[in-house]
Simulated assay, not measured.
Amino acid sequence: MARRTKVYEGKAKILYEGPEPDTLVQYFKDDATAFNAEKREVIDGKGVLNNRLSEFFMVGLGQIGVPTHFIKRLNMREQLIRACEIIPLEIVVRNVAAGSMSKRLGIEEGTPLPRPIIEFCLKDDKLGDPLVTEEHIIAFNWASQQDLDDIVALSLRVNDFLSGCMLAVGIKLVDFKIEVGRVWDGDFQRLILADEISPDSCRLWDIETGKKLDKDVFRRDLGSLTDAYTEVARRLGVMPANSAPATKPHLIN
Protein backbone atom coordinates (compact mmCIF):
# COMPACT_ATOMS: atom_id res chain seq x y z
CA MET A 1 0.00 0.00 0.00
CA ALA A 2 2.82 2.41 0.90
CA ARG A 3 4.30 2.20 -2.62
CA ARG A 4 1.09 3.32 -4.26
CA THR A 5 0.08 6.85 -5.13
CA LYS A 6 -3.16 7.85 -3.47
CA VAL A 7 -5.52 9.66 -5.83
CA TYR A 8 -8.49 10.24 -3.54
CA GLU A 9 -9.80 9.24 -0.13
CA GLY A 10 -13.49 9.32 0.73
CA LYS A 11 -15.48 8.27 3.77
CA ALA A 12 -15.58 4.57 2.84
CA LYS A 13 -13.00 4.04 0.09
CA ILE A 14 -9.52 5.02 -1.09
CA LEU A 15 -8.50 5.26 -4.74
CA TYR A 16 -4.91 4.56 -5.80
CA GLU A 17 -3.23 4.80 -9.19
CA GLY A 18 -3.71 1.56 -11.08
CA PRO A 19 -1.07 -0.68 -12.66
CA GLU A 20 -2.08 0.37 -16.19
CA PRO A 21 -3.09 3.70 -17.78
CA ASP A 22 -6.70 4.72 -17.14
CA THR A 23 -7.09 2.29 -14.25
CA LEU A 24 -7.43 2.74 -10.49
CA VAL A 25 -7.32 0.46 -7.49
CA GLN A 26 -10.36 0.94 -5.24
CA TYR A 27 -9.76 0.00 -1.59
CA PHE A 28 -12.74 -0.57 0.70
CA LYS A 29 -12.26 0.73 4.24
CA ASP A 30 -13.95 -0.49 7.41
CA ASP A 31 -15.12 3.03 8.27
CA ALA A 32 -18.87 3.53 8.73
CA THR A 33 -20.25 7.06 8.63
CA ALA A 34 -23.70 8.59 8.85
CA PHE A 35 -25.31 12.04 8.95
CA ASN A 36 -22.63 13.53 6.70
CA ALA A 37 -19.86 11.88 8.78
CA GLU A 38 -21.10 13.32 12.09
CA LYS A 39 -21.41 9.72 13.30
CA ARG A 40 -18.35 7.59 12.62
CA GLU A 41 -17.09 4.17 13.64
CA VAL A 42 -14.66 1.52 12.38
CA ILE A 43 -16.43 -1.82 11.90
CA ASP A 44 -14.08 -4.74 11.37
CA GLY A 45 -14.85 -6.66 8.18
CA LYS A 46 -17.23 -4.12 6.60
CA GLY A 47 -14.87 -3.26 3.77
CA VAL A 48 -14.34 -6.92 2.93
CA LEU A 49 -18.07 -7.52 2.65
CA ASN A 50 -18.72 -4.38 0.59
CA ASN A 51 -15.88 -5.22 -1.81
CA ARG A 52 -17.29 -8.68 -2.48
CA LEU A 53 -20.93 -7.56 -2.67
CA SER A 54 -20.12 -4.69 -5.02
CA GLU A 55 -18.23 -7.13 -7.25
CA PHE A 56 -21.26 -9.43 -7.28
CA PHE A 57 -23.60 -6.65 -8.41
CA MET A 58 -21.20 -5.05 -10.90
CA VAL A 59 -20.47 -8.39 -12.59
CA GLY A 60 -24.18 -9.19 -12.80
CA LEU A 61 -24.97 -5.80 -14.30
CA GLY A 62 -22.17 -6.19 -16.82
CA GLN A 63 -23.64 -9.50 -17.91
CA ILE A 64 -26.94 -7.81 -18.85
CA GLY A 65 -25.18 -5.04 -20.77
CA VAL A 66 -24.96 -2.27 -18.18
CA PRO A 67 -21.51 -0.64 -18.59
CA THR A 68 -19.58 -0.29 -15.30
CA HIS A 69 -16.14 0.79 -14.14
CA PHE A 70 -15.45 -2.65 -12.61
CA ILE A 71 -12.63 -4.71 -14.13
CA LYS A 72 -11.83 -7.37 -11.51
CA ARG A 73 -11.48 -7.99 -7.79
CA LEU A 74 -7.82 -8.04 -6.77
CA ASN A 75 -8.10 -9.33 -3.20
CA MET A 76 -10.38 -9.20 -0.17
CA ARG A 77 -10.42 -5.39 0.01
CA GLU A 78 -9.45 -4.13 -3.42
CA GLN A 79 -10.75 -4.11 -6.95
CA LEU A 80 -9.31 -2.86 -10.22
CA ILE A 81 -11.56 -0.30 -11.87
CA ARG A 82 -11.59 1.86 -14.97
CA ALA A 83 -10.80 5.51 -14.34
CA CYS A 84 -13.58 7.89 -15.30
CA GLU A 85 -14.72 11.47 -14.84
CA ILE A 86 -17.37 11.32 -12.13
CA ILE A 87 -20.44 13.44 -12.80
CA PRO A 88 -20.90 15.46 -9.56
CA LEU A 89 -24.29 13.95 -8.78
CA GLU A 90 -25.66 11.27 -6.52
CA ILE A 91 -28.54 9.51 -8.25
CA VAL A 92 -31.10 8.12 -5.80
CA VAL A 93 -33.71 5.63 -7.02
CA ARG A 94 -36.66 5.11 -4.64
CA ASN A 95 -39.22 2.31 -4.73
CA VAL A 96 -40.58 2.80 -1.20
CA ALA A 97 -40.78 5.98 0.89
CA ALA A 98 -38.04 6.03 3.53
CA GLY A 99 -35.32 8.21 5.03
CA SER A 100 -35.12 11.80 3.83
CA MET A 101 -38.08 11.43 1.45
CA SER A 102 -40.39 10.51 4.33
CA LYS A 103 -39.12 13.48 6.33
CA ARG A 104 -39.33 15.97 3.47
CA LEU A 105 -42.74 14.99 2.17
CA GLY A 106 -44.42 13.68 5.29
CA ILE A 107 -44.97 10.24 3.75
CA GLU A 108 -45.01 7.36 6.21
CA GLU A 109 -41.88 5.25 5.95
CA GLY A 110 -42.63 2.00 4.17
CA THR A 111 -45.26 3.43 1.83
CA PRO A 112 -44.85 1.87 -1.64
CA LEU A 113 -44.39 4.49 -4.36
CA PRO A 114 -46.61 4.38 -7.47
CA ARG A 115 -43.49 4.08 -9.63
CA PRO A 116 -39.74 4.35 -9.11
CA ILE A 117 -38.78 7.95 -8.36
CA ILE A 118 -35.34 9.26 -9.31
CA GLU A 119 -33.82 12.13 -7.35
CA PHE A 120 -30.56 13.99 -7.93
CA CYS A 121 -28.26 15.37 -5.23
CA LEU A 122 -25.18 17.51 -5.75
CA LYS A 123 -22.06 15.70 -4.54
CA ASP A 124 -20.78 18.21 -1.98
CA ASP A 125 -20.22 17.10 1.61
CA LYS A 126 -19.78 20.69 2.81
CA LEU A 127 -23.30 21.51 1.60
CA GLY A 128 -24.77 18.23 2.81
CA ASP A 129 -25.34 16.83 -0.71
CA PRO A 130 -28.40 19.02 -1.43
CA LEU A 131 -31.29 17.89 -3.60
CA VAL A 132 -31.18 19.51 -7.05
CA THR A 133 -33.49 19.56 -10.06
CA GLU A 134 -32.79 18.78 -13.70
CA GLU A 135 -32.96 22.52 -14.35
CA HIS A 136 -30.09 23.11 -11.90
CA ILE A 137 -28.05 20.30 -13.45
CA ILE A 138 -28.37 21.63 -16.98
CA ALA A 139 -28.05 25.32 -16.04
CA PHE A 140 -24.81 24.77 -14.13
CA ASN A 141 -23.46 22.35 -16.74
CA TRP A 142 -23.03 19.41 -14.36
CA ALA A 143 -24.56 17.25 -17.09
CA SER A 144 -26.35 17.73 -20.41
CA GLN A 145 -29.94 16.83 -21.21
CA GLN A 146 -28.67 13.81 -23.15
CA ASP A 147 -26.57 12.78 -20.13
CA LEU A 148 -29.65 13.02 -17.91
CA ASP A 149 -31.72 10.94 -20.30
CA ASP A 150 -28.99 8.29 -20.34
CA ILE A 151 -28.60 8.42 -16.54
CA VAL A 152 -32.33 7.87 -16.02
CA ALA A 153 -32.37 4.93 -18.43
CA LEU A 154 -29.29 3.40 -16.78
CA SER A 155 -30.70 3.94 -13.28
CA LEU A 156 -33.95 2.18 -14.12
CA ARG A 157 -32.08 -0.80 -15.57
CA VAL A 158 -30.02 -1.04 -12.39
CA ASN A 159 -33.22 -0.82 -10.36
CA ASP A 160 -34.83 -3.67 -12.31
CA PHE A 161 -31.75 -5.87 -11.86
CA LEU A 162 -31.24 -5.16 -8.16
CA SER A 163 -34.95 -5.49 -7.36
CA GLY A 164 -35.01 -8.91 -9.00
CA CYS A 165 -31.84 -10.07 -7.23
CA MET A 166 -33.20 -9.02 -3.86
CA LEU A 167 -36.73 -10.29 -4.34
CA ALA A 168 -35.35 -13.73 -5.17
CA VAL A 169 -33.74 -13.95 -1.72
CA GLY A 170 -36.57 -12.41 0.29
CA ILE A 171 -35.28 -8.83 0.45
CA LYS A 172 -37.13 -5.65 -0.55
CA LEU A 173 -35.07 -3.04 -2.40
CA VAL A 174 -36.37 0.16 -0.82
CA ASP A 175 -33.96 2.59 -2.47
CA PHE A 176 -30.35 2.92 -3.57
CA LYS A 177 -27.74 5.49 -4.61
CA ILE A 178 -25.41 5.27 -7.57
CA GLU A 179 -22.83 7.45 -9.25
CA VAL A 180 -22.10 7.72 -12.94
CA GLY A 181 -18.88 8.59 -14.75
CA ARG A 182 -17.83 9.63 -18.25
CA VAL A 183 -15.30 7.71 -20.33
CA TRP A 184 -14.09 8.22 -23.88
CA ASP A 185 -13.96 5.50 -26.52
CA GLY A 186 -12.08 7.19 -29.31
CA ASP A 187 -14.00 10.35 -30.17
CA PHE A 188 -17.15 9.19 -28.43
CA GLN A 189 -18.16 9.78 -24.83
CA ARG A 190 -20.28 7.29 -22.94
CA LEU A 191 -21.55 6.96 -19.40
CA ILE A 192 -20.73 4.07 -17.07
CA LEU A 193 -21.82 3.02 -13.60
CA ALA A 194 -19.13 3.90 -11.04
CA ASP A 195 -18.45 3.99 -7.28
CA GLU A 196 -20.02 0.90 -5.61
CA ILE A 197 -23.26 -0.97 -5.02
CA SER A 198 -23.45 -2.41 -1.52
CA PRO A 199 -25.62 -2.27 1.62
CA ASP A 200 -23.82 1.03 2.31
CA SER A 201 -25.61 2.56 -0.68
CA CYS A 202 -28.94 0.69 -0.58
CA ARG A 203 -31.87 0.34 1.79
CA LEU A 204 -32.68 -3.35 2.12
CA TRP A 205 -35.55 -4.75 4.22
CA ASP A 206 -36.45 -8.35 4.88
CA ILE A 207 -39.75 -8.92 3.06
CA GLU A 208 -41.32 -10.99 5.83
CA THR A 209 -40.19 -9.13 8.96
CA GLY A 210 -39.20 -5.64 7.73
CA LYS A 211 -35.81 -6.10 9.44
CA LYS A 212 -33.26 -3.63 8.11
CA LEU A 213 -30.21 -5.15 6.42
CA ASP A 214 -28.38 -1.95 5.41
CA LYS A 215 -26.55 1.05 6.87
CA ASP A 216 -29.68 2.15 8.73
CA VAL A 217 -28.63 -0.50 11.26
CA PHE A 218 -25.67 1.76 12.03
CA ARG A 219 -27.55 5.05 11.63
CA ARG A 220 -30.29 4.02 14.04
CA ASP A 221 -28.29 1.78 16.41
CA LEU A 222 -30.33 -1.32 15.53
CA GLY A 223 -27.64 -3.93 16.14
CA SER A 224 -24.58 -5.32 14.39
CA LEU A 225 -23.87 -3.87 10.95
CA THR A 226 -21.54 -6.76 10.14
CA ASP A 227 -24.28 -9.28 10.92
CA ALA A 228 -26.72 -7.42 8.65
CA TYR A 229 -24.28 -7.25 5.71
CA THR A 230 -23.26 -10.87 6.27
CA GLU A 231 -26.93 -11.88 6.05
CA VAL A 232 -27.27 -10.14 2.67
CA ALA A 233 -24.09 -11.80 1.39
CA ARG A 234 -25.22 -15.20 2.62
CA ARG A 235 -28.64 -14.95 0.97
CA LEU A 236 -27.10 -13.90 -2.34
CA GLY A 237 -24.67 -16.82 -2.26
CA VAL A 238 -21.61 -14.64 -1.80
CA MET A 239 -20.94 -16.41 1.52
CA PRO A 240 -21.61 -20.05 2.42
CA ALA A 241 -25.17 -20.57 3.65
CA ASN A 242 -24.04 -22.32 6.82
CA SER A 243 -21.40 -19.77 7.81
CA ALA A 244 -21.71 -17.97 11.14
CA PRO A 245 -21.53 -14.17 11.22
CA ALA A 246 -17.97 -13.06 11.79
CA THR A 247 -16.05 -9.81 11.94
CA LYS A 248 -13.60 -11.21 9.38
CA PRO A 249 -15.82 -13.38 7.15
CA HIS A 250 -14.54 -16.04 4.78
CA LEU A 251 -15.89 -15.30 1.31
CA ILE A 252 -16.37 -17.53 -1.70
CA ASN A 253 -13.88 -16.80 -4.50
Rank of each mutant, 00 (worst) to 15 (best):
D30R: 07
L113R: 05
K103G: 05
E85T: 09
A241G: 06
L162T: 07
D124V: 05
V48H: 08
T111D: 14
L167P: 00
N159E: 09
W205A: 09
P21Q: 13
D175A: 06
V217Q: 07
I192Q: 01
D150H: 04
C202P: 03
V217F: 08
V158G: 12
F35A: 07
A168F: 00
R3M: 07
P112Q: 10
I86W: 04
V238L: 04
I252G: 00
R235K: 14
D125T: 11
L122W: 11
D185A: 07
C165D: 02
R157G: 01
Q79M: 15
N95T: 02
R190Q: 12
I171C: 02
D175E: 15
V169K: 13
K123F: 10
V42M: 01
A233V: 07
E231Y: 02
M1R: 05
T5A: 10
R220S: 10
F140I: 08
T111C: 05
R235E: 12
W142M: 15
I81F: 08
G18F: 12
I71G: 03
A244Q: 14
L53A: 03
G18T: 08
E17F: 02
A228F: 01
T33C: 09
F161Y: 15
C121E: 05
L222H: 00
P249C: 06
K172M: 06
M76P: 00
N51I: 09
R235V: 10
K13R: 14
M101W: 11
P21W: 09
N141H: 09
K211T: 11
R104C: 12
D149Y: 03
V42G: 00
A153W: 00
K177I: 04
Q189E: 15
G223F: 09
G99W: 13
I91R: 01
R115Y: 09
S243R: 03
T230G: 07
A2Y: 05
L113G: 06
A34Y: 13
N50K: 09
K13C: 01
R190M: 13
F70M: 01
L148A: 04
I151E: 04
Q26A: 15
C121L: 06
N242A: 14
D214N: 11
T68L: 02
D214A: 12
D125N: 10
R104Y: 03
T209H: 05
L222M: 15
E38K: 14
I107A: 02
E55W: 03
L225F: 09
K248I: 07
L251S: 01
V132N: 05
